[in-house]
Design a protein around this nucleic acid. Structure first.
Lengths: 337, 337
DNA sequence: AGTTATTAAGTTACCGGTATCAAAAATCGG
DNA sequence: CCGATTTTTGATACCGGTAACTTAATAACT
């Protein structure tokens, strides 16, 4: 039950108008399209704004003009710093445009995401960027019905809501697995989080690669682990207990990989001689541990940048914008493999 | 120049009202205070909402009722996962209340922060949580004039805008330094980021502690380093080059400490025998490296929770809420010292 | 200069809700 | 069963802006 007594009993445009001795409309114009107001009046308006400490009311503006200057972003979690780059990419594009970014956290779960999306639609945001690619039917209906421009980020879905800017989790995972195979590793194990549509794509890519190098796509080679460093430990423990002849571990996440590396360290397992380790995200950490961890460099910043650009383009409808952008990935070979 | 052609040409309350055969007011009431509408009508309204796919317009609601259901949060950066806990704390409190969290990133710099604050005030948010504690005079004036409830988080400022929930950077830093001294280290060096008011408080705490144990508060013992793991490397390099007899390094940040640890590893410096290392934030990472790093456990989650609670309390004005909450800190002793 | 094109400022209506108060319906007491 | 009270619903105005149109002022041109 939200309730705020008196929101800012603040200065209104009308007050500014009176102070400046002009009509409200002139104030509105001076603020939004300064060039359409004569310098003298404009200055009077600005002075009045300054003297009264007027702050524009975006609520009223958006309502009246059916335009919003807010872009919403839905991320699964802030714990993972991989999103920091994406946020930066978006911010860099938005900052000079006058748009603002509104961020919300929502676990990887279509129902909770629906709540968050609904809140954004209720705010009538100008556009939405979603990291998830799996959504409740209701959420999709809502977004379509409201004509909110949407960009999806986390993967390349077959049936996007609107626009997509991403890399392919499956292709990336497959490429890394093939890379490991090419390096001579033949008993590769994949460790990933459960219950995450992107993680599943990564699994598929892993299995596809195995098939491609003539191995049976064996589900036994996939370990489901917990989030965080402990997940890496779990992977190593599993290998030690059940798959001792494994020669390479591919972790679908940077934190997992580092956790695994630390655990190898504790066990006295040489990396990469006893076990090679590769990770899915090239965050700072994986290049600072020793040995540095081979990883997939994903265009996190670029994803943010392009997403924001597409959104703005679409909002301004300058042209029928692109629908799908695959930004690819890159394998960074380091000492861990 | 923000501009959106036709925001959601969506279903309005009026449409729902027609469909349900009632007045707009009844729809509004059915949605906001269901109990005040007879079950039968209420149901008709809900059905109409469902059939038409109506999504409440928060813009109009906030404007009309002078109530907002959005709480703004300003963080210096998302790169650092230390804020994830705080965000979680806030979310946990807000979720069941119907309030939504709107997050914005702003560097540690009063001017840029002012832009962000101004945007929030323009949106007429119901309350604001700021991590920074240094603000431009204009920003403070704006917040005071608009009567926006504000909680500051990053430190315990002497002259808060409104409310404060935090720990004391100075006290924490002093306590850790004394802890190191108590452990027998006598040549302690402090490494921290520049240009950050909280970092300065931490320096002061360090110097105070030195004085307390009878050492001269020597600025030579303070190293200013860059952000990220490299900062830790810089600290070690500085020690190696200029302060070789240092026996303990206190890093004002977890990432710095880990960077330093990694670098010691590369140099073959034993931790803690050659050099002890302590860090300022007890993130997951510092307990997973080996040796585990002694650190300050700060009540990040609790800060978020209490901040949100205070804000809501103040918004609902149930009672003249507390002004200042010091949540303290805790020293976690590990193998690195 | 007189007429027309252009630009600047003002007027009015409305964006999509809610507060407030009045009217209608339901409940109650005697 | 009727008047009084309470509950439920509706009518109207307004929240604080902007769109669209009109009028006033200025510039341009024959």
């Amino acid at each position: 039950m939200p309730a705020t007594k008196g929101l800012a009993s603040s200065v209104r445009m009308r007050d500014v108008a009176e102070r400046a001795g002009v009509s409200r409309m002139t104030v509105s114009r001076a603020l939004n399209k300064p060039d359409s107001v004569k310098p003298e009046l404009r200055q009077r308006v600005f002075d009045a704004v300054e003297e009264l400490g007027y702050v524009h009311n975006h609520l009223a503006r958006s309502l009246s003009s059916s335009r919003s200057n807010v872009i919403g972003l839905v991320l699964p979690s802030l714990e993972n710093s991989i999103f920091a780059q994406t946020v930066k990419g978006i911010s860099d594009v938005l900052r000079p445009t006058g748009y603002h970014l509104m961020l919300a956290e929502s676990p990887d779960n279509a129902e909770e995401e629906e709540q968050v999306i609904s809140a954004f639609v209720a705010q009538r945001v100008g556009g939405l960027i979603l990291h998830g690619t799996e959504h409740s039917p209701a959420a999709v209906r809502m977004l379509r019905a409201s004509h909110t421009p949407v960009v999806e980020n986390g993967d390349l879905p077959k049936d996007p809501i609107d626009m997509v800017v991403s890399y392919s989790n499956r292709a990336a995972s497959k490429a890394m697995t093939l890379h490991l195979a090419r390096l001579g590793y033949s008993k590769i194990v994949f460790a990933g989080l459960a219950s995450n549509p992107r993680a599943e794509e990564r699994q598929k890519g892993f299995l596809e690669a195995l098939k491609e190098v003539g191995q049976s796509p064996d589900m036994q080679k996939i370990v489901r682990v917990s989030r965080g460093f402990v997940g890496g430990e779990e992977a190593i423990a599993h290998i030690a207990a059940h798959l001792p002849d494994t020669d390479a571990l591919f972790c679908a996440g940077d934190v997992l990989a580092v956790g695994a590396l630390f655990d190898c360290d504790r066990r006295g397992w040489a990396v990469p001689d006893r076990l090679a380790i590769a990770s899915f995200d090239d965050v700072d950490l994986v290049r600072h541990v020793s040995p540095g961890i081979t990883s997939l460099r994903l265009p996190r910043y670029e994803i943010g940048r392009r997403s924001a650009e597409l959104l703005l383009q679409r909002i301004n409808a300058k042209k029928s914008s692109v629908k799908k952008v695959d930004l690819g990935f890159e394998i960074v070979q380091r000492a861990s493999t």
